[in-house]
Structure formats: structure tokens, C-alpha cells
Design a protein around this nucleic acid. Structure first.
Length: 183
DNA sequence: ACGATGATGAAC
DNA sequence: TTCATCATCGTA
């Protein structure tokens, strides 16, 4: 399988563009000499300071400062007292934006196993605050690769973001992207 | 439908 | 220093 690593150039674009483009790409996690690959099938864009659903809406704080930094770094935060969320920072430095990785599939023994939910994904890949602010390169043990595998008939759908009802009109924007088997 | 569970940001 | 809230999940 032919693969190339995704670099800063890929992430240094609008969050909505990166979100759409990152579907079908592969998250690779290297841990204790083992490598696990997960294909991304659901993401959400959080775009700019006026996005009421985004952590960046309140301005720069200790927690969200990574979102204001350079593209291609991990933004990992803790919610609901028990869950870690994995995001990749997008857009140019100074403009707060990120893509939340919500679901993927891992192939084992030829079978596709879904990992539906952002907290399940981080639990599966053993991701926590250690990754916050680190670049998505192989050296850090968590990076992204292109996928040249022939993708059977998949289609992409957009919808409302999940769990952001507090965000008023911004909650209704179609910033959630999914890749589903069309069949 | 709801509780678990603790960091975060804003109010006091 | 207190308080409400939270980019969720498993159990019911």
C-alpha cells in the first residue's frame, strides 16, 4: 500500500476544507513497538473566533492556546470529567481553528471494526494530554498518512455538529462530515 | 433519560 | 473560592 505522511501544508488551510479532505485518511499510532492504523470516517470543523461552538470563541486561554498556533499540531483536551478529545489544528497561525476527529474504522483480520465516538477513539489509541501541542509527525508517535487504497463506493455527507446545542445558530451549521458506504 | 466525574472559565 | 458548564459514553 502506497502511503505518504501528511505535512503542515495539508493542515494549513481552512478547517472546513481540511475536514472534508481528511476523511478516508489514516491516523497512525506508534506505541511500545506496535503500530495501529485507523481510517478517519467522521470529523467536525471548528472555525475561527466567531464560531460559538468553538473553544476559541471566548478568546485565547491556557486551554485553547494551541488552536491559535500553527497548523498540524494536536489539540487534546479533557471533557465531562473523563474523556479526551483529539483535534488537529488547521489554518494559519493566529487564526484559531481545528478539526475534531470523531470516528474511524480499524481493520483486523480482514474485518472492519468501527470506533464510533471521539472519546472511544482516544481510548483506543491511548491518547491523552501528553499529545497536546505536539506536531502530527511520526517522531511524536501520532501522525497522519494519505491513503491510496482503493476506496469502495463511499460517499460524504454533511450535517450538524454533535453536542453543541448551546451554540445557537452555529450549532446548525453543517460542519460535521462523514464518510459512509453508499451501496 | 441520566449519572459519572473533574477541568475550565467566569463570577463573586 | 465557588459555581455552572461541558466538542461524551454506558447503562437503563
Amino acid at each position: 500500500m502506497q502511503r505518504r505522511k501528511l505535512t503542515k501544508k495539508f493542515f494549513n488551510r481552512r478547517a472546513l476544507v481540511v475536514a472534508r479532505d481528511i476523511l478516508g485518511k489514516i491516523i497512525v499510532r506508534r506505541l511500545n513497538g506496535k503500530t495501529v492504523s485507523v481510517m478517519i470516517i467522521e470529523v467536525e470543523a471548528y472555525d475561527g473566533p466567531s464560531d460559538r461552538a468553538s473553544h476559541a470563541h471566548v478568546g485565547k486561554t491556557k486551554r485553547n492556546e494551541i488552536m491559535f498556533g500553527e497548523a498540524g499540531r494536536w489539540y487534546v483536551y479533557f471533557v465531562y470529567g473523563m474523556h479526551w478529545m483529539l483535534n488537529i489544528v488547521t489554518s494559519k497561525k493566529g487564526y484559531p481553528a481545528a478539526v475534531l476527529i470523531r470516528a474511524g474504522v480499524v481493520t483486523r483480520h480482514g474485518k472492519e471494526i468501527p470506533i464510533n465516538g471521539p472519546a472511544k477513539l482516544t481510548k483506543f489509541l491511548k491518547i491523552d494530554k501528553k499529545f497536546n501541542g505536539l506536531p502530527a509527525i511520526s517522531k511524536t508517535g501520532l501522525w497522519l498518512e494519505d491513503s491510496k487504497s482503493l476506496m469502495p463506493s463511499y460517499r460524504i455527507t454533511r450535517g450538524k455538529r454533535i453536542g453543541v446545542e448551546y451554540a445557537g445558530a452555529w450549532a446548525k451549521k453543517p460542519y460535521n462530515f462523514r464518510m459512509t458506504k453508499s451501496e
